[in-house]
Simulated assay, not measured.
Amino acid sequence: MTFTLATWNINSIRLREGLVHRLMREEQPDILCLQECKAPVDRMPLEGFRALGYRHVIARGQKGYNGVAILSKLPLREVGAYDFASLGHARHVAGQLENGITIHNFYVPAGGDIPDREANEKFGQKLDYVAAMRDWAHAERPRKSILVGDLNIAPREDDVWSHRQLLKIVSHTPIEVEHLGQAMEAGGWVDITRKDIPQGLLYSWWSYRSPDWDRADKGRRLDHVWATADIAAAGHGSRILRAARGWEQPSDHAPVLASFDL
């Protein structure tokens, strides 16, 4: 089975329903994982997605914030929706394809603006969430699995526009990078995007605060596609659809895509 998977923090599935339709029509991924849907499941515009061929849906939602969904042309069944760090947030859902491949869709907390858990509760929640991902991977040792989503951490120096200037900025601080590395190691995860594109600056997020985002290009790679080592060699064709950041009323994230031969 060959399929293409896309992950995208849509920043409101209802507000940007039309952009989701555009991605489906123009890129036609077999599976689309969305984060920050900002709606209960019964308020997500799923009928329009089903009309475009995405008949299989697994989702968790909340009113006004969080929320994750897997929209698929391929049959899949729900196999989990974990409340990591017991935050009570809709930040994870997992589905399994008929060939046994499990897809985990994550939305890691952003962490606020101050990189100090004593001064900023949200930063502590973020670290606790990623630590819980690590502990889960240690306990379950995932196999034949793909992990995608907005992990809200840019781990490598070339995943941000300025490593030096962002060392004290939430999303690229050493403690966040360390936590994410531990979670990756615990699950034996391979960064498929960087396997395919090993060198060079690479971003999937540009702040709304920069109206001239494209020219300034002060981005970060916050959105990821990982796979367990047993299937990582099957991943290929990784790319970031940068153009989507320039669509009308865009999300501040761009879709990240990869294909798998499994």
Rank of each mutant, 00 (worst) to 15 (best):
L97M: 01
R117D: 11
A94D: 10
G112K: 13
I101F: 00
H92R: 04
R117I: 03
N99F: 02
V130C: 06
M133T: 09
A90M: 10
H104S: 08
D135M: 00
G111D: 00
G100V: 10
L87H: 02
A119K: 15
I101A: 00
G124Q: 13
E121L: 12
N120Q: 10
L97K: 06
L97H: 03
N99P: 02
V93Y: 01
N105T: 07
K126M: 09
H92S: 01
E118K: 15
V108T: 12
E118T: 15
L87M: 12
L87S: 01
A131H: 13
R91A: 11
L97Y: 01
G100W: 05
A110D: 11
G124M: 10
D128R: 13
V108I: 12
Y82C: 09
E121H: 13
F123I: 02
E98G: 03
F106K: 01
D128N: 14
Y82V: 14
D116L: 12
K126W: 05
G112V: 08
A94L: 10
K122E: 07
K126G: 04
A94V: 08
A131W: 05
S86E: 14
D113N: 14
M133R: 08
N105M: 07
G112H: 13
M133P: 00
N105I: 06
R117W: 08
G80R: 05
Y107M: 08
A110W: 01
F123C: 06
H89S: 11
T102R: 06
Y82H: 15
D116M: 03
D116S: 13
G112T: 10
G100T: 09
P115A: 10
S86M: 07
Y129Q: 07
D135I: 03
R117Y: 09
Q96P: 02
A110K: 04
Y129V: 00
G111M: 03
A132K: 10
G100H: 04
G111P: 08
I114T: 14
G111F: 02
Y107I: 05
L87A: 06
I101P: 00
V79C: 14
K126D: 05
R117F: 09
A81Y: 02
V93H: 04
H104V: 01
Q96T: 14
A119I: 05
G80D: 03
D113A: 15
G124A: 13
G88Y: 02
R91H: 12
Y129D: 02
N99I: 05
V130I: 15
Y82F: 09
R91C: 06
G100Y: 05
H89E: 15
G112I: 09
Y82S: 09
I103E: 02
S86N: 15
G124C: 12
A81N: 10
Q96D: 02
N105R: 07
V93L: 07
G112D: 13
A131D: 14
E121Q: 14
G95R: 00
A81W: 03
F123P: 06
A110P: 00
E78G: 13
G88Q: 07
Y107F: 12
V93G: 07
A90D: 10
V130E: 02
G112L: 03
D128Y: 05
V93N: 04
